[in-house]
């Protein structure tokens, strides 16, 4: 027994603690640097006589500057509105699209699936110019709608493919049973399929949210006048002035723009993981 115990202990170290700490170092190291810079007084930032990774005095000035000298709060609200709006739109349309692609056999189905996927291959660095024409024609410039309606172009392909996979994993018999019992197709979908696919929908939502949260180019071009900026665009325009960077505040914005999201994800993450499973494995 003693042998087994020490073996298990060794395995625990080899299989968990050592690799886990290596991942922590690699993945959180740049993040640690962001945190340090956001708390470091500027005089220390240019001081090459001391270890740059250590803090000798702590200042919250950079955070304060974000709130007093930029519209950071407003940018955060904008980002939330845009991200939640586009995520919701992409999710709802993708649920139907994914259901159709995953459940129905119809002429052109495979082709449509492929075409939707192909949308993913068109680079935004090309699309933003003709898109700006559409955004202008629809009179959406500098409104939330400009992003809520354009973000789904890169969210829908991803989300509908993911959801297509989930719907395929849910036994079709359950649905048939509901239909035989007199439910409509929509009722069957709502009461039988959606609850079972909920974890998958949640995970697709988290993916969409992250992609929208990070977007820069469309936000820069379609919505960046006055207070109507997202966090990435707002902090870059407010905190980089010609050849001078406000490093501390930029990094502070990075911290504030990610930690709350990470915390929110930690509540979802278990659901999210079990949700991914169903769709992913049979996709």
């Amino acid at each position: 027994m003693a042998m087994v115990g020490s073996n298990a202990k060794r395995n625990r170290w080899l299989g968990l603690y050592i690799p886990l700490s290596m991942f922590m170092v690699f993945l959180l190291f740049p993040f640690y640097w962001m945190l340090i810079v956001s708390l470091k007084p500027n005089s220390e930032l240019l001081d090459t006589s001391v270890n740059p990774f250590l803090l000798f005095s702590v200042t919250l000035d950079h955070y304060a500057y974000l709130f007093t000298d930029t519209d950071f709060v407003r940018y955060t609200i904008n980002t939330f509105v845009v991200t939640i709006g586009s995520t919701a739109l992409a999710l709802v349309t993708s649920i139907f699209a994914g259901y159709a692609l995953g459940r129905f056999r119809f002429r052109g189905g495979t082709l449509m699936g492929a075409l939707i996927f192909l949308c993913y291959l068109v680079p935004p660095t090309l699309l933003f110019i003709p898109l700006s024409q559409i955004v202008a024609d629809l009179g959406l410039y500098n409104s939330y709608w400009s992003l809520i309606l354009t973000y789904p172009t890169f969210l829908i392909p991803f989300a509908s493919w993911l959801l297509m996979g989930y719907f395929r994993t849910i036994a079709i018999d359950l649905e048939h049973a509901a239909l035989v019992d007199g439910a409509t197709r929509l009722q069957a979908m709502r009461h039988v399929v959606l609850p079972l696919a909920m974890p998958g929908i949640l995970s697709a939502g988290i993916f969409c949210f992250t992609l929208g949260w990070n977007e820069f180019l469309y936000a820069l071009v379609f919505m960046s006048s006055g207070e109507m900026k997202t966090v990435p665009v707002g902090v870059v325009t407010d905190l980089i002035r010609a050849d001078v960077y406000f490093w501390g505040s930029l990094m502070a914005a990075g911290i504030l723009g990610s930690v709350p999201v990470a915390v929110a994800y930690s509540f979802f993450v278990d659901n999210y993981i079990s949700g991914m499973t169903a769709g992913a494995t049979k996709g």
Partner: peptide
Amino acid sequence: VLNQTFRFSRVFRAFLLLPWIVPTAISSLA
């Protein structure tokens, strides 16, 4: 690694996602 059960695994799972969540516009500056 993360598939094993250990204390605070949920916290680790969330925080190891951070590189993906930080807006690229800002992490690139880091």
